[in-house]
Design a protein around this nucleic acid. Structure first.
Length: 994
DNA sequence: GCTCTGCAGAGAGGA
């Protein structure tokens, strides 16, 4: 009951009810099937309980106390009955599972569960791409009622357009090949249209089970498609815990003996073999359920095979729907219970078993999840007493995983567990469910949503599949919001049932309007539709690390090499002489570049050139990491090497590129242009393809091969270039801040790698405490640092004056940091109005300010209001967000307010002339909190200032934290403490005492 | 005990 996963769930009655299960009991009566009785409640106090009785197979639903369920059906005097004839129980209804996921689980649920974790395991195939293209052509043809000639034209436009070029490049296919395949289908398109769209009296009799006047009857009827209402309609159903995209939503006339019926029905297109299989039919049945969210029950749908133009009716009979929903519940159970607490009394989590391995080696042979499936059984399940494998599969599993050592299996299961725990923490915080569980007005308060919007102006198709929409607040101005340009949004209708209409990106936010680039054109919706735009936190970055973990375990030379280096700590190798790597013609260029570097930087260049495996560059604060990376890229490319340049954030990548752009080194920037620095946008693939109007695979390939330097974020590893190309070097900036498995991504497509970072600064963020304790915040940089022969340190810094530097030197760097020049060492802050100001400070109560303002004082307080330096030169940092809010609010009164206020964490990688650190803490409580216990956070905090570092805090309180205690001791011994100020709160006023 | 960045992604077929 204390499960945090459900602790914050909103319970309620009614159509979209949510019940908490309090008790589960199995009732076994003589001679009849067992029943399951659930004691449930929809009241937050858990007091008013109801009873739910599960019968006729529903008792198999794996529901346990604490679970959240949704009930469909009827409740009479506090009792729900879910049986063969009526009602549904939906387990974890806020977990929406897609139609394909559920139909894929019919044969093997294990595969369906694995596919949810390892999304990119299927790299796609020719058939799939052709399928996607055929869908597109068909959908556009029927929507626009095109003639045969026009359809041919459209096919040409799509195949020879830019839309699918990337996929074609990835699969190494030619456009002509695709076109040839596509053309074979076109005659069937026309045949279908002839049969069903333009010919009401067609001879294609179909058997349809439909309700009529209260009873269901099997009717023989003629089907006529009269109107196409939507294509790719996206429906989220929090009632059934389902989601899906419906190929075609059509108005259908059903002509039968008793008359004509008109219905809106789903049409599912298939370009493969005409199998009419249970999987295909199940998909249609699930779509009939999805339709309930928006319209009356269609009761049936159609399966259309594009190869032949044959259309099969599929009824959404109660029995089939019921079985599919039970399947969904099982899937939801496995996805939700991916970890469990080990033996009673212990608090440690461990991985749960997946759905069992099926006994069908024939089916497994072609399964895209085979590797992950066997890996999980070998690394995780083989040690579980409760898991038995089909005997025939045991040797297969062993054979397919024999390339892995015990250390590899251990690494896999540890990281799989940590990633899963972290995923659960993320789901708990974010997730889509807020969109349907919390009204827009309420979500607006937190800034995550803008509701009550109507669409204005025309929808503008910017490029294929990208529609620019404009929204305006129905009454008044757009409220204050966190929505920023470039953020992902989900557009829904305020009216229920219109969830997830489209997703896209924010283009512009003004006081009156929000414009968004969406994947679907919403202009077909009624003009008075009221929308809400929700900030889409999505489940970003959850798939990539799982995917990388799976890749690392593959039976391939690249993966084996990385396993040896990363898991088994194999010593990195270096070659002896530079002459063997340095081409004669590059010598002069390289020498010139080296001239601009200091000694440790030069050493770093040499080390990288000599490396056969990897190099770690420790970039202490202010030591010119960006300059070093920039020089490194120039040298490597002068030597003829290809380079993949990455970092976790777009900002970090662009920082290097901004510098690099000044030199004659060409590069290609991957990633969404919206997320890229404006000055770098012209180097993005998106921009280049637009400006050169690239429309053939050949041209695209040429572009991809044109630059030896490619830059992208670590998450962008699924780009086709990285799938097909191998680079000589991969450089990862800010590597000490990147989670191990995310950092691993770009390394698969490179022969050698360079990690740049500083493990004395903040590690990757890990939300889940247990995962953190298990070691999840260990970056790859930190892990490999134990191989000291691969490490070079940049120790000469150009940021801080000597006094500021000395703090960090004492704290963590053991005196290794040195100033780059006298100028740096002696630099002080320039305060032009100081003289005048000092006169104003005659009041004895302000003497402390005088001292504080003295440029020769490294530790002090500064009044930015009158001192006369630019506010933009000042940064205020604190470990705590709430403190920043208070400071920001206090400063809001000022006319000109350009002082940047931010968290320590956010200031990493940046600097300012003057930094004011507010340590906040002012109590001797036992509750210390963890933020200030971290040496790395303190190190970051005190190494941001170039000329003046002002720290504010309560000395005795702060002495409880070991890192601060050390710092304060040092300050005292250096006589810097006398200037230290204590910040005291009294009745909401800030008073400074010395 | 309070720190937060990444990003399209449901479905494209195959046995």
């Amino acid at each position: 009951r204390a499960d945090p996963k459900v602790a914050d769930t909103i319970l309620r009655n009614g159509l979209n009810n949510r019940y908490r299960v309090l008790e589960v009991s199995v009732i076994q009566r003589n001679g009849s099937d067992p029943e399951k009785h659930l004691t449930i409640t929809a009241s937050p106090s858990l007091e008013e309980t109801e009873l739910c009785i599960l019968r006729n197979g529903w008792e198999s639903v794996p529901v346990v106390p604490g679970d959240i369920v949704h009930l469909e059906g009827e409740c009479s005097s506090g009792t729900w009955v879910i049986n063969a004839q009526c009602g549904y129980l939906v387990l974890y209804p806020d977990l929406l599972l897609s139609g394909t996921t559920i139909s894929n689980s019919i044969r093997c649920m294990r595969r369906a569960v694995l596919s949810e974790r390892f999304r990119g395991s299927e790299s796609g195939s020719r058939q799939m791409l052709v399928g996607t293209i055929l869908h597109d052509i068909f959908q556009q043809s029927v929507t626009n009622i095109l003639t045969q000639e026009k359809v041919q034209e459209l096919a040409n436009k799509i195949v020879y357009g830019q839309k699918y070029l990337k996929e074609m490049y990835q699969l190494n296919l030619k456009q002509a090949q695709i076109m040839q395949e596509v053309e074979e289908y076109l005659p069937s398109f026309f045949k279908w249209a002839e049969d069903f769209m333009h010919n009401p009296a067609n001879q294609n009799k179909m058997q349809l089970k439909l309700s009529n006047g209260g009873k269901t009857e099997d009717v023989s009827s003629n089907i006529e498609i009269v109107d196409i209402l939507d294509i790719e309609e996206n429906i989220w159903s929090p009632r059934f815990g389902l989601k899906g995209k419906i190929d075609v939503t059509a108005r259908v006339k059903i002509h039968c003996q008793s008359g004509v019926q008109s219905r809106i029905m789903p049409l599912e297109l298939k370009s493969g073999k005409e199998s009419n299989s249970i999987e295909h039919r199940s998909q249609v049945i699930l779509y009939t359920l999805l339709n309930l969210e928006r319209r009356v029950d269609p009761e049936a749908g159609f399966l259309l095979y594009l190869k032949t133009g044959t259309m099969y009716p599929v009824s959404g009979a109660r029995m089939d729907r019921r079985e599919l929903m039970k399947l969904r519940n099982h899937l939801a159970f496995y996805l939700t219970h991916s970890t469990c607490k080990s033996d009673v009394g212990k608090q440690n989590s461990q991985l749960s078993a997946l759905p069992p391995v099926i006994d069908d080696s024939q089916a497994c042979k072609y399964c895209s999840q085979m590797n992950n499936c066997f890996l999980y059984s070998r690394a995780v399940e083989q040690n579980m007493a409760s898991v038995a494998f089909p005997p025939a599969m045991v040797p297969v599993i062993d054979r397919e995983t024999q390339h892995l050592k015990p250390s590899h299996l251990e690494y896999f299961s540890l990281w799989y567990l940590m990633l899963t725990l972290e995923l659960q923490s993320g789901e708990h915080k974010k997730g889509y469910k807020n969109i349907w569980m919390i009204p827009s007005l309420e979500r607006e308060k937190a800034g995550d949503c803008v509701g009550n919007m109507i669409r204005v102006d025309e929808v503008d198709e910017i490029s294929e599949g990208q529609y620019l929409h404009f929204f305006q607040r129905r009454n008044g101005a757009v409220p204050g919001t966190n929505l920023l340009v470039g953020d992902r949004v989900v557009v829904s209708g305020e009216e229920k049932g219109l969830l997830g209409l489209a997703t896209g990106y924010v283009r512009e936010v003004s006081a009156t309007k929000v414009s968004c680039l969406l994947g679907r054109n919403l202009s077909h919706l009624p003009e008075n539709t009221v929308f809400r735009l929700d900030h889409d936190e999505g489940d970003v970055g959850t798939g990539v690390p799982f995917e990388n973990l799976s890749k690392l375990m593959r039976d391939s030379p690249v993966s084996e090499r990385l396993r040896n280096l990363i898991i088994d700590f194999q010593k990195p190798h270096f070659i002896q002489h530079l002459s063997t790597v340095l081409p004669p013609q590059a010598k002069e260029t390289v020498a010139n570049i080296l001239k601009g570097l200091n000694k440790p930087q030069k050493q770093a260049m040499k080390q990288v050139l000599l490396s056969k495996d990897y190099t770690l560059i420790v970039g202490m604060p202010g030591t010119g990491k960006t300059t070093t990376i920039c020089a490194l890229v120039r040298i490597l490319s002068a030597c003829g090497f290809s380079v993949l340049l990455t970092s976790f954030t777009h900002t970090a990548v662009d920082n290097v590129l901004l510098k690099l752009a000044k030199f004659k080194v060409g590069f290609l920037r991957l990633g969404r242009a919206q997320k890229v620095h404006p000055d770098i946008q012209k180097y993005t693939e998106e921009e280049i393809c637009r400006s050169r109007s690239i429309k053939s695979v050949t041209d695209l390939e040429e572009l991809y091969n044109s630059q030896p330097v490619v830059a992208t974020s670590c998450m962008g590893v699924n780009h086709p270039i990285l799938v097909r190309k191998q680079f000589d070097f991969c450089i990862v900036d800010e590597a000490s801040q990147i989670s191990q498995l995310i950092c691993l991504g770009p390394l698969f497509c490179s022969k050698r790698f360079v990690l740049v970072g500083d493990h004395q600064q903040l590690p990757p963020l890990v939300l889940n405490a247990e995962a953190r304790d298990l070691g999840m915040s260990e970056s790859l940089f930190k892990r490999l640092e134990q191989n000291q022969n691969a490490v070079v340190q940049l120790t000469v810094q150009y940021r801080m004056n000597s006094k500021i530097m000395s703090l960090s030197n004492m704290l963590v760097y053991e005196g290794k940091l040195e100033c780059g020049s006298e100028k740096v060492s002696n630099a002080t802050v320039n305060l032009p109005n100081l003289k005048k100001l000092k006169l104003d400070l005659g009041d004895p109560s302000k003497t402390w300010l005088k001292e504080v303002l003295d440029p020769d004082t490294p530790v002090c307080f500064l009044n930015t209001e009158k001192a006369g330096c630019k506010p933009s030169d000042i940064g205020i940092i604190s470990p705590y967000r709430h403190q920043l809010k208070t400071i920001t609010d206090l400063m809001a009164k000022w006319k000109e307010n350009r002082v940047e206020v931010n968290t320590v964490d956010k200031y990493q990688g940046r600097d300012k002339s003057i930094i004011i650190v507010s340590f906040v803490r002012n109590s001797m409580d036992e509750n210390l909190g963890t933020l200030l216990k971290d040496w790395r956070r303190l190190n970051v905090a005190i190494t941001r200032a170039k000329h003046k570092l002002v720290m504010v805090g309560c000395v005795p309180s702060l002495c409880c934290y070991p890192p601060l205690e050390k710092l304060l001791c040092h300050l005292q011994s250096q006589a810097m403490i006398s200037f230290f100020c204590t910040l005291v709160w009294e009745r909401g006023e800030v008073r400074l005492t010395c």
